[in-house]
Amino acid sequence: MSRQVEIRELYRQRPRSRFLRWSSAALAVLAIASWFSGELGTDDLFSARRLANLERFVGELVPYPLQGEAFDAGVAFRWARDLMAEKGWAAAGKTLALSVAAIVLAAFGALVLAPAAARTFASPEPYLPGPRPPGPLRRTSWKAVVWGGRALLILFRSMPEYVLAFLLLAMLGPTAWPVVLALAIHNSGILGKLTAEIVENLDPKPMAALRGLGARRPQIVVFGLYPLVFPRFLLFFFYRWETCVREATVLGMLGVVSLGYWIVDARARNHYDEMFALILVGAAIVVLGDLVSILTRELVRRFG
C-alpha cells in the first residue's frame, strides 16, 4: 500500500513542462478542428460532374497528336522535342538564371545584415574590452542595432516570395527584377538569420586577436568573420539555392517568361498536355538542382 502512495507522490511531483503539454494539446485540437471546420467539404469533390471533368482532364494530359490514337513513340518524341525547342529549353534556362541571380543577391544581403544581427559582434565592445566601459548611450544604441537587424531579418523571412513578387511587379514593371528581388529578399532573411547564428557561435579568439592588432569593425568583418563563417555559409547557401529553384519555376506565373509563365499560359489555353509536360520539366530541374546542391554540400563538407 505504501508503495502505491509513494509512486503516486512521485507521479504528482514528476518534472514536466506545462507549456509543452498545452502546446501539444493546442496543436492537436487545431489539426482536428481544421478538418471539422466545414471549409474542407469533400462530398462534392466526387460528384458526377467533377468525375466527368476529371476523366476528360486525364485524357487531355496525353500529348495532343496522340489523343485518340495508338501510342507512337516517334510522334511523342517529336512533340516533346518541338515543345522543348519552342519554349522548354529557354524557359528552363531562365528559371535557373532566376534562382542563381536571386541566391547571389540574397547571399550579399545576408552577409551585410548578419553581423548587425549577431549579438557577439554588434556590441559596444566586440570581442575585447575597450579602454573604458561603454556608456549607457552606446550600450542602448548597439542594442537597437541588434534589435533592428533581427527585426528586419524576421520581416524579410515572414513575407512569402509570391506576395513580394506580386507587389514589386506592380512597382517595377514587367522585368525579371521583381521575381529576382522577391526571392533575394525572402532568402536573405533566412540566410541572414542562419549566418547570424553561426557568427554568434564562432570561437571569439581570432576576432579578439584582430581587435588586439587595432582592426576596426569592417576589417574584423572582412578578415575575421567572413573567412570563419564561409564553409558553413556555403552549406546554407546551396540548401537555400535548392528552394530558390523550386520557387523560381513558380514565380514565372506572375509574368516573367520562365517555366511558370508557360504553365499558366498553357492552362489558360486549355492545353493540358503542354501544361503537364512543362510541370514535368520543372520537376526535372528541381531534381537536378537538388542533386547539384547535395553534391556541392558534400564537397564543402569534405574540403571546407
Binding site: E6, I7, L10, Q13, R14, P15
Partner: peptide, 8 residues
C-alpha cells in the same frame, strides 16, 4: 534510485 522513477 526509487525516487528517480519519473525523472528524465
Amino acid at each position: 534510485i526509487a525516487d528517480k522513477l519519473y525523472e528524465r
